[in-house]
Write a protein that binds this DNA or RNA. Structure first.
Length: 803
DNA sequence: GGCCACCCTGAA
DNA sequence: TCAGGGTGGCCC
């Protein structure tokens, strides 16, 4: 008898272990580790992952599995193993680890229904529920709940008249398209054609088409080509001249785009020097992590492309991670242009079905390269030759909910398995990575000059306090205004960047400064243009915008946008001739609008591109000669130990958008704190000095990369409970770790209340605590088991956001 | 997560 | 006595 070890789709501590199921004879040769199957679990049916197959089991009361959900494993051996590693290192449930590795489309959907028991008729049922079963076989549980039928249904079920059934459903179907093709050869068709009635002109045309094109083709396209109707084709199928068939097709998100084929470019000396050790690592199959530190515009992408080329030639596969790829269609173009159909693209802009299809291309080994955001690191390749992480410093590589993994760590783990190189690329590496490169843990490769020797743009830092003193109260300094005017006259383009925290806007009273907060969470409500309402992003609370301020009754209460709208208005006043494209949450909400706006800008339909964070990346247009940062320091004062690093990275990144081609570029940074090192050094693009300064501060305050962090967050509806329990945990941790570790807390989280639950935390800073994982596991065991009257504990190892 | 068995409570 | 509601332990 064969037994399947199954990780069941129930994310709790108690079920976070394999359950054993008998594999019935009929499935014995089908079921393999890595497949999804449907199993009975208590009274329900649920999805599970087969992790292993054994000959026997310790468990006495075994049940049989119900059916497989896959014909071949969706997780290969390596990924199953990687799942265990993920569980261990991020302390998440196994089921979360496995689900994170698959496209969302493969996550099961569950339905609970009530139907007549076998042999029962609707007539036997009480009046109240009879109509529900007279014309329908089954009733949706949700509907029964809504109509208040549950207790009646339960009574009837107890009498054996009804039964409750559970259904496990797939989220998406493979896309099926009707194909039509000839059943005879061209010559035979010609003969058959003569037999058709004289007046069936359309049918003859269709046959003619197949005489010329003997291959089956999509029905939709055939109808377009031949101008025939579906009925015509149907008639020919009835005459047994043509066949119809449903075939699986991939949804193609790039259907209406063509990619110009590109060829390897000659490398500069610096590029050639950098690529050499990478190629050596590929060739010798030796795992190594490279930090490719190259200033903006130094040609990192060409190094990626030619390394991948080498990997493909060796018959291996490549994974390329790009931060939020939908933001950089240009990046996709570069990979599709070089490797064409060998590239699959995975990013958040695709629909679930499209993502699933791209994933299937990888699984079926129809592609060799994956370009994608964070989760693409789990691409189901089996012979990886290189993993590349572009913009390595980006915080979006860290997932903020379970499993709380960092794509960089997963990349290194997989690369160790395949003995292949990892390339981390950035113009402003994270301190963690650069420190590792300094310690020779990573192999540092430097590109210190731009390609075609373009100089880095000249940067002007403008002290806005001076402007104010000089009587300029506008948000544009005199210098920036002059330069904008100058570019418009010359017909060149400018980018204006508003460095604002977050992407959201809030409602505030201009008289007393009152901000409308969520009643359930300690956070301001976010303004939504649709219906002019305010929403809480954490608990879903919604309300109207008040007409007068609830605090001071002033009528001057209104929403503060990301600020871009205000900037646009002011631009209209001072530079009425300027054509402006604004990019923020309001203008890029709909799918594809982002790309469209960028395209318009590229085509020269505007002089100024105005936006928030989202325009900082990947913009590479030849005509941009001016970049202006309106307020460089808004992000600097956030309570986050990485705020200086983020400011420096962002300013450097933005400055790099100017003058990447023939025309030289200039950058203007406006700030109220020009003396701050992260702004000053971004001005001179001096990463090395910034690194030194920032490292000193990190060392002083016991932050990464000198110390590791682990964050324990507790939530409960009573403030007192949460404080007391956090206190206990702080004590426990303190008693268990060495005196080298620093334990902070209990302290309120940066968002102290969400959905009426108070949030307290304990932050552990440590250098070497071999027992820490064990200690943290113990805490989770203790608290997740006891359901302590609703106390929830979550742990983030190496957190990025300390909330 | 969802279910059921179990307990307690309160009202007839 | 039983419906109603809250809780804890189990699910191969």
């Amino acid at each position: 008898m064969k037994i399947a070890n199954v990780i069941v789709d129930v994310p709790t501590k108690q079920t976070d272990r394999p359950f054993d199921y008998i594999i019935p004879k009929e499935w014995e040769n089908v079921i393999q580790p890595g497949m999804r199957i449907v199993v009975p679990f208590g009274p329900r049916k649920i999805q599970g992952f087969v992790t292993d197959i054994k000959a026997g089991s310790e468990v006495k009361q075994l049940r049989e599995m119900i059916e497989p959900m896959d014909l071949e494993p969706v997780l290969n051996k390596e990924l199953l193993h990687l799942g265990e590693w993920l569980t261990e290192t991020t302390l998440c449930f196994k089921i979360f680890a496995y689900q994170a590795m698959l496209p969302a489309a493969l996550k099961a959907k569950y339905e609970k229904m009530v139907r007549l028991a076998p042999g029962m008729k609707a007539e036997c049922l009480p009046q109240k529920i009879k109509p529900y079963f007279t014309n329908h076989k089954s009733l949706d549980w949700e509907e029964a709940l809504k109509d208040g039928l549950v207790s009646v249904l339960q009574q009837e079920a107890a009498k054996g008249k009804l039964e409750v059934v559970y259904v496990v459903k797939e989220r998406v179907r493979k896309k099926q398209v009707k194909f039509v093709g000839p059943l005879f050869s061209a010559a035979e068709l010609a003969v058959e054609k003569e037999k058709i009635q004289a007046n069936a002109e359309k049918q003859k045309q269709v046959l003619d088409y197949f005489i010329d094109h003997p291959n089956p083709m999509e029905l939709r396209k055939l109808l377009q080509e031949t101008n025939a109707s579906a009925a015509t084709v149907k008639a020919l199928v009835a005459k047994k001249l043509l066949f119809e068939e449903e075939m699986e097709v991939y949804r193609n998100p790039f259907e209406h785009r063509t990619f110009e084929h590109t060829y390897p470019l000659p490398l500069t000396n610096a590029q050639a020097a950098a690529i050499k050790p990478i190629h050596a690592s590929i060739e010798s199959q030796k795992h190594e992590v490279f930090l490719l530190y190259g200033v903006t515009g130094s040609g990192k992408t060409e190094i990626y492309l030619q390394s991948i080329q080498k990997v493909i030639e060796k018959g291996q596969e490549a994974i390329v991670l790009v931060p939020e790829i939908s933001l950089t269609p240009q990046m996709v173009n570069r990979f599709k242009g070089r490797f064409g159909d060998l590239v699959a693209v995975l990013h958040s802009g695709l629909s679930a079905g499209e993502k699933y299809d791209e994933w299937r291309k990888i699984q079926r080994k129809e592609v060799k390269v994956v370009v994608g955001a964070r989760s693409a690191i789990f691409a189901p390749f089996e012979n990886i030759g290189i993993i590349i992480i572009d913009e390595e410093h980006e915080t979006s590589y860290k997932q903020e909910d379970m499993p709380r993994y960092h794509a960089r760590d997963v990349a290194i783990e997989r690369a160790k398995t395949y003995q292949c190189p990892v390339v981390l690329g950035s113009a402003t590496p994270s301190l963690e990575s650069f420190a590792r490169a300094q310690k020779k843990v990573y192999h540092l490769l430097t590109l210190s000059s731009r390609m075609n020797e373009r100089p880095l743009p000249a940067v002007d830092i403008i002290d806005m306090r001076e402007e104010l003193r000089a009587g300029n109260r506008s948000m544009f300094s005199r210098k920036l205004f002059d330069m904008l005017k100058d570019r418009i006259e010359k017909g060149q383009q400018s980018v204006l960047f508003l460095n604002k925290r977050g992407h959201s806007s809030f409602v505030m009273c201009r008289d007393c400064g009152y901000v409308v907060n969520c009643p359930n969470c300690d956070i301001s409500l976010t303004y939504h243009r649709a219906g002019s309402r305010m929403k809480c992003h954490y608990c879903g609370y919604e309300s109207h915008i008040p007409k007068v301020c609830p605090e001071c009754s002033s009528e001057y209460i209104r929403y503060f946008g990301t600020g871009t709208q205000k900037v646009e208005e002011e631009l209209g006043k001072i530079l009425p001739e300027a054509r402006v494209i604004r990019m923020d949450v309001d203008t890029t909400g709909r799918k594809g609008s982002h790309e469209r706006l960028l395209k318009e800008f590229q085509e020269g339909k505007a002089d100024i591109l105005l936006g928030t964070q989202m325009i900082a990346k990947g913009l590479d247009f030849p005509n941009i000669t001016l970049v202006g940062v309106l307020s460089a320091d808004t992000m600097l004062h956030l309570p986050d130990f990485r705020s200086s690093e983020k400011t420096f990275q962002l300013l450097t990144q933005v400055s790099g958008r100017a003058g990447r081609h023939q025309l030289p570029g200039e950058v203007v940074i406006q700030t109220y704190t020009p003396e701050h090192y992260s702004i000053e050094l971004a001005g001179t693009q001096n990463y090395d000095l910034f690194y030194q300064r920032e490292m000193m501060i990190r060392k002083l305050h016991h932050y990464p990369p000198f110390y590791y962090l682990a964050l324990i967050t507790l939530t409960h509806e009573h403030l007192m409970t949460v404080v007391a329990e956090t206190e206990k945990i702080v004590h426990y941790v303190r008693s268990q770790v060495s005196n080298q570790a620093v334990i902070l807390g209990p302290a309120a989280s940066p968002i102290p209340r969400i959905n009426n639950r108070y949030r307290y935390q304990c932050l552990i800073k440590y250098k070497r605590e071999p027992n820490l994982t064990r200690i943290l596991k113990k805490i989770l065991d203790q608290y997740q088991k006891e359901t302590k009257n609703g106390l929830l504990v979550s742990i983030d190892i190496n957190p990025f956001i300390l909330m």
